[in-house]
Design a protein around this nucleic acid. Sequence first.
DNA 1: AAGGTACGCAACCGCACGGTT
DNA 2: AAACCGTGCGGTTGCGTACCT
Length: 327
Amino acid sequence: MGRSPCCEKQHTNKGAWTKEEDERLINYIKLHGEGCWRSLPKAAGLLRCGKSCRLRWINYLRPDLKRGNFTGEEDELIISLHGLLGNKWSLIAARLPGRTDNEIKNYWNTHIKRKLYGRGIDPQTHRPLNSAVASTTNTSNTTATTKNNTSKKTSNNTSNSSFQILDAQNSLAPFVNLPEFISNSTATKVANSDSSNMKVITDSSSAEDSNSSSGMTTEEVYPELSLELSIGLPVPDHQPQVPPLNLNDQSKHKSLQQIKQQQFLWPILTATTTVATEAVCLCCNLGFQNSQTCTCNPMKTATGIADCLYRYYRPERDSGISSGLTN
DNA sequence: AAGGTACGCAACCGCACGGTT
DNA sequence: AAACCGTGCGGTTGCGTACCT
């Protein structure tokens, strides 16, 4: 048995919103607040479905939205967060005040993808387009897209983008593997003892699969590897406190999974968004400082995160955590 | 000037998830 | 346990417009 439709479609308007509809929606939410989207249209006198009202409010009418072009800083932040999170637009948007997931998603598809291609970086994998590693480990997920086929009618199949350990010199991606509850697919870390040759095998075409016929697991094939999926970040004395896991805080319909994600991601996201007064290179802290992987040179880029993921922390700001993650 | 094409963005759709009945 | 509800998310589409020939 399927779900009942969210509204009676034959009685609802579709398409662009009129000024009058906008005003009705704004006035209603001003008076009654957000929520109960299903009943809102009727109560507000709108011939729209609740989802449409919610989307219009969140993406366009909300007063706290930032208008105008994305700044270069925002660009770099989006790129680095995408490297961490993949197409988790809502999580990315949570780190960019005033920006919506839809806006960021559109901006990614129309601007940043092109920008990364211009840098010779595959926007899906954050790897160099002509990377030999990419060609040997994962070609299925790398869609060579040109300006002519960037966004429209292109199924980019990115929801399964994996988190990878990459060569820091050639990538914007971080040195972390996120657990499976964040990515829909597993990222099997394949790093040998010489971290300069760190590789990662991703997706279903990974070593796990290629070895499955022989009945061997990746651990058996690469016994020297640690398959621990998460890497604990170095903890400075003034480590910002992870916002408490408040299981009662589901008033905004935040799922337990989302809260768990936020808990896990907190140090990582903090690392990518705080302005540096102190920089700790993750490579160094992970013991890679003597390898080519570590290109440690804090502040070498505008954001300090383009060449290597540094853990930036600003005590005066981060000691009293207040973030979109905690809303 | 006109027609075709590409682009950008707002909006829609289907699905997943957690909660409730 | 199953059905249903409410909401949020990511992918996709449609349309207005800028650009090109």
